[in-house]
Amino acid sequence: MKITIFVGSSRKGGNSEKLADFVVHDIEHEKMYVKDLHIRPIEDLRHAENGFQTIDDDYDQFVEALAKSDVVIFATPIYWYSMSGLMKNLIDRLSQAIRDKRYPNLKEHLKTLRTIVVVVGGDEPRIKGLPLIQQFQYTLEFLNMPFSSYIIGVANQPGDILKDSSALSQAAWLNQKLKSGFFTEER
């Protein structure tokens, strides 16, 4: 089972990353820091005569990581009641990736991926973060990607996620499910 975490925080070691780390504790995985990738914003050319064009940036690294994964974890802080801009830019470019002739099997592969979303915020995130979870749910539904689970953590300052026993308990439960192969079984 190949697990990849996409960290959408603007700083390494943030609370959303730490919570995702608990989900994959003692499980082999890869981590990709979106902030370290140069990803240009999407230019919507779906209806243009020649459609989307190849862009010279690092987005292919994300697509290739998706293509090699069985389980993906999107970890992002809650910024202004949504995902980080870094993560949103990554998600927006999927419109282009699913039409890219260089990845003819991507749409089919996305249907097999198991997806976990890990978000952390400080302003009543278990209520105010729900629209963000729905945003992921609708996006993944559009892409026919299975939305396996999510965790909403509470934290303001660096390291505060370690005080959120509920989020840590959910992370431990997901960790056991991943170790048991639950998320890679056919449904």
Rank of each mutant, 00 (worst) to 15 (best):
A171P: 03
F142H: 13
D100N: 12
I127E: 12
L90V: 10
S166V: 13
G153H: 07
E124G: 07
S180N: 04
D123G: 06
G153A: 09
F52K: 01
V24S: 04
H38R: 03
Y33M: 02
G51W: 01
Q170C: 04
V71L: 13
P125M: 00
L174Q: 15
R99V: 14
K12I: 14
G153D: 08
D21K: 12
N105Y: 12
F6Q: 12
A97E: 00
P131Q: 02
G121W: 11
M32R: 08
D44K: 01
Q137E: 13
T112D: 00
M145R: 00
H25R: 15
I3G: 02
S69R: 08
F142A: 04
M32W: 09
D26V: 04
L132C: 13
I42Q: 05
S10R: 07
K101D: 09
D70F: 07
S166Y: 14
V120E: 01
I116M: 09
N175E: 00
T76K: 06
I98P: 03
H47A: 15
S16T: 12
S169D: 15
N89T: 13
K12V: 08
T54L: 08
V23G: 07
L168Q: 10
A75V: 09
L86R: 05
A97K: 01
F183G: 05
G14H: 09
K35A: 13
V119G: 05
Q96E: 15
E141P: 01
H38Q: 09
K179A: 00
V63H: 06
F147Q: 09
T4H: 04
Q170E: 03
N15K: 07
L178K: 00
E30R: 13
I161P: 05
F182E: 04
L178C: 02
Y33F: 04
L94M: 14
I116K: 01
H109L: 03
V118G: 11
T184W: 05
E141M: 14
F62W: 00
Q96R: 15
M87A: 10
V154K: 15
F22G: 12
R11W: 09
F136Q: 05
L110M: 06
E17D: 13
E64K: 12
Q157D: 15
D100S: 01
R93G: 11
K128M: 15
Y150E: 03
A172L: 05
W80E: 12
A155I: 08
I98W: 05
P104S: 06
Y103H: 13
P146V: 02
D60E: 07
T139A: 05
E28Y: 01
D56W: 10
K111I: 09
L94R: 04
L45K: 14
S69I: 09
A75R: 06
S82Q: 13
I55H: 02
G181M: 00
T139G: 07
V117H: 03
Y103I: 08
